[in-house]
Simulated assay, not measured.
Amino acid sequence: MATIEILGVPHAYELTAPTSCPHTLVFIHGWLNSRGYWQPVISRLSLDFQCLSYDLRGFGESRSQPETDFNREQISVNLPPTPSSPVGSSFDPLYTPSAYAQDLAVLLQQLNITSAWLIGHSLGGTIALWAAAQMPDCIQGVICINAGGGIYLKESFEQFRSAGQRFLQIRPRWLSQIPLIDLLFTRASVARPLERYWARQRVIDFVVADPEAALGSLLDSTTEEEVNRLPQLVSQLKQPVYFLTGTNDKVMEPKYVRHLASFHRLFQYSGDNVIEIPDCGHLAMLEQPEAVASHISSIVEA
């Protein structure tokens, strides 16, 4: 693991060796996850592609706040205007998908990555879409995994936000020490039980996530404004955007993935930019890493 400072905040990341491919694959994890979930996929791709994975601010081994007094507004980042910010250089509130995309822009600048494909899981997919809008010259394309939406259903979202807040309130550190607690996480949100190793990692990431970042990213990414902005964002992207969805995903059902995908030009009339993975739930990179890696490789090399 390496550490790099992004806008004053230490971030953990891993970068594999360069290859003959001119593009770097950048992997963005989802809510209450960490960069390690990508390793089954990266291990299958790193011989052909340079791969970057990192922990989002406040998750995994990345800090949530600067170690010293720091003003984000003092940093000059060359970002074009996006649907949320008429002035591209202005910074968004800390935990919006756009703010996390701005973190990513700085990370790529600091690592001298000038050509990348973004692969984002769930919330990470939304962050990838924002980053593609903010960095059109650098980002060659986006692959969203178990990510979609763009339809704001008031009652459903209010229930989701309320349930998420309650979920975050039951996170004592000693929770990870309870015998067999990880067994609960082998089956949550997946079509087939995960290996105990990954269930254990899910418990750890659930417990160590910074409270402010966990709650802030949940609430800031599910507002009516944010959800309704997604289709507009996708429709404006010039880069190719593909969506991988699990046929048994109950968190982000395929119909909602197809809805968001339909706003991109590649959708055409039959969903040409949507790929369904059979017998797969919400954690495709752990449940079906071979299929995910194969689809990524085919898309990037096309």
Rank of each mutant, 00 (worst) to 15 (best):
E5D: 14
L7V: 07
V9Q: 02
V9W: 01
L15H: 10
T19E: 04
S20D: 08
W31Y: 05
S34R: 14
S34Q: 11
V41C: 02
L45Y: 00
L52S: 02
L56Q: 12
R57F: 01
E61Q: 13
S64H: 08
E67F: 04
D69C: 14
R72A: 11
E73V: 05
Q74F: 06
P83M: 15
S89F: 08
T96W: 02
T96D: 11
D103G: 01
L108W: 00
L111I: 05
I127R: 01
W130F: 05
D137Y: 08
G141N: 07
G148Y: 05
F157R: 04
G164I: 06
R166Q: 13
F167Q: 11
W174F: 15
A188C: 07
P193Y: 15
E195C: 13
D205I: 03
A214S: 09
L215M: 15
G216R: 11
S217F: 01
D220K: 09
T222M: 09
T222N: 11
Q236Y: 03
F243D: 01
T247F: 04
M252V: 03
K255V: 04
V257F: 10
S262M: 06
S262C: 13
L266C: 15
N273C: 13
D279P: 07
G281Y: 00
H282D: 00
E287F: 00
A291V: 07
A291D: 04
V292Q: 03
A302H: 07
